[in-house]
Design a protein around this nucleic acid. Sequence first.
DNA 1: CGTTAATCGAGACGGTACGTCCTGTCTTCGG
DNA 2: CCGAAGACAGGACGTACCGTCTCGATTAACG
Lengths: 207, 207, 207, 207
Amino acid sequence: MSDVTTSLPADQERKAPGRPRSARADEAIIEAVLDLLADGTPAESLSIEAVAAKAGVGKATIYRRWANKEGLLVDAVASLKGELPRLAGESVRDDLIALLRPVGTPSHTRAGKIMPCLLSELHRSPELYRCFQKITEPRRELMRQVLRRGIDRGELRADLDLELVLVILVGPVVAQSILAWPPAVHQRNLPERLVDAVWPALAAPAG
Amino acid sequence: MSDVTTSLPADQERKAPGRPRSARADEAIIEAVLDLLADGTPAESLSIEAVAAKAGVGKATIYRRWANKEGLLVDAVASLKGELPRLAGESVRDDLIALLRPVGTPSHTRAGKIMPCLLSELHRSPELYRCFQKITEPRRELMRQVLRRGIDRGELRADLDLELVLVILVGPVVAQSILAWPPAVHQRNLPERLVDAVWPALAAPAG
Amino acid sequence: MSDVTTSLPADQERKAPGRPRSARADEAIIEAVLDLLADGTPAESLSIEAVAAKAGVGKATIYRRWANKEGLLVDAVASLKGELPRLAGESVRDDLIALLRPVGTPSHTRAGKIMPCLLSELHRSPELYRCFQKITEPRRELMRQVLRRGIDRGELRADLDLELVLVILVGPVVAQSILAWPPAVHQRNLPERLVDAVWPALAAPAG
Amino acid sequence: MSDVTTSLPADQERKAPGRPRSARADEAIIEAVLDLLADGTPAESLSIEAVAAKAGVGKATIYRRWANKEGLLVDAVASLKGELPRLAGESVRDDLIALLRPVGTPSHTRAGKIMPCLLSELHRSPELYRCFQKITEPRRELMRQVLRRGIDRGELRADLDLELVLVILVGPVVAQSILAWPPAVHQRNLPERLVDAVWPALAAPAG
DNA sequence: CGTTAATCGAGACGGTACGTCCTGTCTTCGG
DNA sequence: CCGAAGACAGGACGTACCGTCTCGATTAACG
């Protein structure tokens, strides 16, 4: 949470005096941010004034909740939930490819359009970075499980450094989505080719 | 070229009438941009007014040359020349590590400080992207040569897809510089660990 | 009023939503304009930026109230109140001279310094002209009263066209303040000589 | 003359070396100024750049001849010659009215359109003021001759202060052209009414 | 007859002010 | 006390002129 106002005390539900904050406003603001991002507004030039106008909300209502644009972005992004792909669970190779694919191929969902343009903002904001990590963690965890399963089955080397493998697999796909132009057009089948190419480094020695 | 005024016809050197544009101003502007970037100004919030002030130049002198901030950035970046590392040439492994290291560890040179914060802008601008590719091409070419040498010597597999290998090696390092926080602190020895980890996928089968 | 925003309906005092405009800002702006004018800034080259700086106000705060420099000038001038001279009331001739004198001899009051340099702007702006007329009307009205008193007493012709007489008396003094150089230096005693010279045209026939 | 370059030595006609200044440029510049003024450009906001463009001349060619806008205006105005009205010479009253009329009623000639809007600039510039006086002097002199003739014929008082009479007659007409809005619409027959009204102050005592 | 030197047009130069827009804060009202 | 509405001081935007300068090309008179 990057709310400006400190949270309520844990033990007792103290009711704040005066008019309670409108949940409708919260939603409307977050929705407005996501819509603007999805419409192509470059995250950095997202203007609070535009958000307020689109949400039908006063600017102060935004500043009362978030101290800066970063915080607003964080909470907006946090509300995105990327669904995880269903894994067949039969082949380690296929599961890895399935997990890598959506990272490299921007879907037509709103989340799919927003995430890539956030990559650019990560290095500016530890908050946003942590938030991004949190959102993508389930996908990474899933990948770890797939790898551990491969090790258990004897398909993969037992001495793999899982975190390093994640970097090796995810890194090229992420980098490609930044370094390629137009974004993510080259190498649509990159995940497949990537997994196959590094496979000898992952696979347990035959015999 | 991102000049506003269209170029001269190729066959004949027609001299434009009026006072020619000042080369000193060109330099001063580019230098000002680079200095501001190196001083930590986040590339997107680089203000033309600040550039003009730092360069000791009228705003119009900038707008006369570049139609927008992107063009100015492109030409500023284009003037950066990253020196290539000297390669020992003895070990393919060591050469690859040497080539990867400066990408991941921002040097104290101005170019070293500027390049990473440009990664964020690449996906917004095809021009800037092309410019970035052009600048980094020599380093990629060097890496290709190292790989080819390894193949010739029999150290590396003969059927390697060089471009794919570049993606596999460079991708994780670039991604790390974007996804890690604080930037490039984790994994200082990433290049070394990376090359060693994927080595089995590159090396020619023994015997 | 030369406000940009249209006025409220007459019958009902509808309160505008949002923060009301600051009266302090109004004052500060007007004061700044008058100070700058009195300091010798030639009314035409009065820069909004300078006004804003002197008033300690954002430029937008000025543009929110006035659409152009003319309107601002009008309202600034409108805030000037020229005090009327005390008339002895004994002699028509002396009273007329007293009323004409301050027009021709710029006093050291702020209003006295500002008014003459506005004459030049009048022919450009109907608004400013009307405003000027309104400010000077009390003095003209006083002059009419003096003339009527003279007629009633039998000192002046009964068939005088009062408005024409005003033009005859005020015109030369005003014209002199424009056409003479340095301004208003020639003919310091012009009002006296003027009244005496045209007196035969005003006075009732003897006997 | 308000030329920037100092004049030639008195005794000998030394010819300056180099290319002589183009008379065509002189004319074109003055013409451009007059055209712009006649087209309604408010004398103060007359931009040198516009003059240069309209005259088909480089800006430096203007600045080489005149140090400032005032000088340029002066020379432009100096090139205007107001033709004097033909006087019937029979009646002093009619001649005075004829001499006053064109001052108050802007003609459709270029000079007629330009002169009134210069009145506003006079108090800013001694040069321009002197130039204006010089141009209008012939008309004033003519008026003096008419008055002297009236005196000689016994129609007018012998003790008239001619200069004061000029002020009394011309002042109201000039003032009206500045203070009235729209300019010079009120009081089209002001000259006639004016002369008739002050006539008792001018006329020689009957008998 | 070629040199010399000030002119010409054009237009770039460092600046200043323009009028607009957005920022983050504040101040009013009605709910 | 929160809601919207919107004014506040500040500051960057991109444009238009300012008055100066620097080009290559003219255009005389001088040597």
